[in-house]
């Protein structure tokens, strides 16, 4: 099939950037979206132009690196998939496709479609862990049984790949789904219990400091999340944060 691509090009963080139009031809329905981008880039290199920079790595939907805003939606039109798992059979011959980077003040553009998501790392560093030493001198793994329902819920929250689609699709560029997934995972497990208060407070504060917007419960994040993380996690984090704020001593 033949397509018209309208892609955001930006040389560097300081550059203004603009949408540019590129035609591509010979696209097959079995190709992934990123393979379609490979075809375009090969063409650009051949013509002596600079290829479009985009983030990608595993190409099997788990590393969270790929991040394209396709036709007005994070990771494109299909639900529950990352850009790399979006296949061209979701498009028709002659389609025009807009491709933009994640837009958020907390995710500055590095080049073209590549953004800096280190804000997510800093949020995890502020408390997204259990403070257990890696000495191996821990208790036996089966010493603390965990209710299956909670274990499963913790797992569902933990499947977050940190891609940032939630931020990209939220009208307020809020990171609540990402942060709440980690807060929930650890709040649901006995291992995370001792630090639950400080974790909720610190991670939320870091999130605010990074410049993400507030949650207004539009629910867009959960719809666009490639791992379909539930809004229930946001409610749980709201609860955790409220409890921690009320009961903290200093």
């Amino acid at each position: 099939m033949k397509l018209t691509l309208k892609i955001w090009r930006q040389k560097g963080p300081e550059d203004k950037g603009a949408i540019q139009t590129y035609p591509v031809d010979g696209i097959d329905g079995d190709m992934s979206f990123l393979e379609m981008m490979d075809v375009l880039n090969e063409q650009l290199i051949e013509k002596g132009e600079e290829p479009v920079a985009f983030d990608h790595d595993c190409r099997e939907g788990i590393c969270g690196m790929c991040s394209m805003y396709i036709n007005g939606r994070a990771h494109g039109p299909k639900r529950g998939v990352t850009t790399c798992q979006l296949h061209m059979r979701s498009f028709k011959d002659g389609d025009t496709i807009y491709i933009e980077p994640w837009r958020s003040t907390a995710f500055p553009v590095i080049k073209d479609l590549v953004v800096d998501r280190s804000a997510f790392d800093r949020i995890i560093q502020s408390g997204g862990f259990v403070s257990v030493n890696t000495s191996g001198n821990t208790i036996d793994a089966n010493a603390t049984p965990i209710e299956k329902e909670n274990a499963d819920k913790a797992f569902d929250a933990a499947t977050c790949i940190g891609c940032g689609a939630c931020v990209a699709s939220c009208k307020n560029a809020s990171a609540m789904l990402f942060v709440s997934a980690k807060v929930s995972q650890l709040a649901l497990l006995p291992q995370g219990d001792p630090e639950r208060k400080s974790r909720a407070l610190n991670m939320v504060n870091q999130m605010d400091e990074e410049g993400f917007g507030n949650c207004t419960n539009t629910g867009a994040c959960a719809v666009e999340c490639p791992k379909e993380i539930s809004l229930e996690n946001i409610a749980r984090m709201n609860r955790e944060f409220l409890k921690a704020s009320i009961s903290k001593e200093s």
């Binding site: 259990v130 603390t144 049984p145 965990i146 913790a154 291992q191 995370g192």
Partner: peptide, 25 residues
């Protein structure tokens, strides 16, 4: 020899391994 310790370590870190209805791994 150290393999068993890895599981203990990971569970302590909050890795959500699959569990059965009795809550065990």
């Amino acid at each position: 020899e150290v393999s068993a310790n890895i599981i203990d370590q990971c569970v302590a870190q909050g890795v959500p391994f699959a569990r059965d209805y009795g809550g065990l791994l």
